[in-house]
């Protein structure tokens, strides 16, 4: 190995260490007690690792006036994410199918107009959406948050499926039509079977986006319906009886775990969604 290549490897490893450092610090801090945190430093290994901070972050840390830990909010997030991901993915699949293979006058324009939705800064819709949710009686509800995430997620899911289905040869659709297959039959028997990768990409993308959302969560949720990101922020900024950095770090890790696990298990699809979604949005 030449000196040049050695330098390249060294540089790559140094950067890997830099990227890993915050995760390492979080894990180590979450395993120490507060006394050890004050005595030692960021990188020091815990002398007597304890799960105290994790237990407190999960079950009894204060996130404002109530002190029930992150657990209830973790489940709020699940109750928001699961329906929002499924509904927006399902609608996106059908939309993409139509926009790719059943074009009609104006459908391209519609797609362009929808694409724009991937880019708008959501600040510009926050106020009227709050009014709409209040009018529908959905202010501060899980259903309201699901609705918001579905509406503003459709642009992305439609884009994903449309771009995927565009590459299916038109002849295939024509031939199926000649054989008398209907709109839905073609979708079910030709398009669905080849759609596993794009469903995976879309579901992972939507899951990550919605789980990590903070803006909609902080604006449209109430005390009982806050998602985990909002609760984490409240937990960190609530100081009842001194800062507990170990609890903060355990809480941050709990909030990060679901998306990290997905990333480790299905990184390939995550990256694909990131590039597909991000290049256009």
């Amino acid at each position: 190995m030449t000196l040049g290549r050695l330098a390249i490897y060294a540089l790559l490893v140094v950067f890997a260490a830099v990227y890993l450092m915050p995760l390492y610090v979080m894990v180590m801090t979450s395993l120490k007690d507060i006394e050890e945190i004050r005595q030692g430093n960021l990188l020091a290994l815990p002398e007597s690792p304890t799960l105290f901070a994790w237990i407190k972050a999960w079950g009894s840390a204060c996130t404002g006036s109530e002190c029930e830990g992150l657990a209830p909010f973790f489940f709020n997030s699940i109750r928001i994410v699961v329906p929002a991901v499924l509904i927006s993915t399902f609608i996106g699949a059908l939309n993409g199918y139509v926009l790719a293979k059943w074009k009609f006058r104006g459908s391209e324009l519609l797609f362009g107009a929808l694409l724009f939705g991937c880019f708008i800064p959501f600040q510009v819709i926050l106020l009227p959406m709050a009014r709409l949710l209040a009018t529908l009686g959905l202010a501060n509800t899980v259903t309201g948050l699901v609705l918001v995430h579905v509406i503003y997620g459709i642009a992305f899911t439609t884009l994903f499926f449309r771009n995927f289905y565009v590459s299916v040869p038109n002849e295939l659709v024509k031939a199926a039509q000649l054989d008398g297959a209907s709109f839905f039959q073609i979708f079910r028997h030709i398009f669905l079977p080849i759609s596993v990768p794009i469903f995976t990409v879309t579901i992972i993308w939507q899951f990550t986006q919605i789980w990590n959302d903070f803006l909609f969560g902080v604006v449209y949720s109430g005390p009982g319906t806050q998602p985990i990101t909002v609760a984490l922020n409240n937990l960190v900024n609530t100081s009842v009886g001194g800062k507990e950095y170990n609890v903060d770090m355990a809480a941050a890790l709990i909030a990060a775990l679901p998306t990290l696990v997905v990333y480790v298990l299905a990184g390939k699809y995550f990256v694909r969604g990131l590039t597909a979604g991000a290049v256009k949005g």
Binding site: Y19, N212, A252, A255, L260, V262, F270
Partner: peptide, 8 residues
């Protein structure tokens, strides 16, 4: 890092 929330 891209997989975790900005809040984290």
């Amino acid at each position: 890092p891209m997989a975790v929330s900005f809040v984290v």
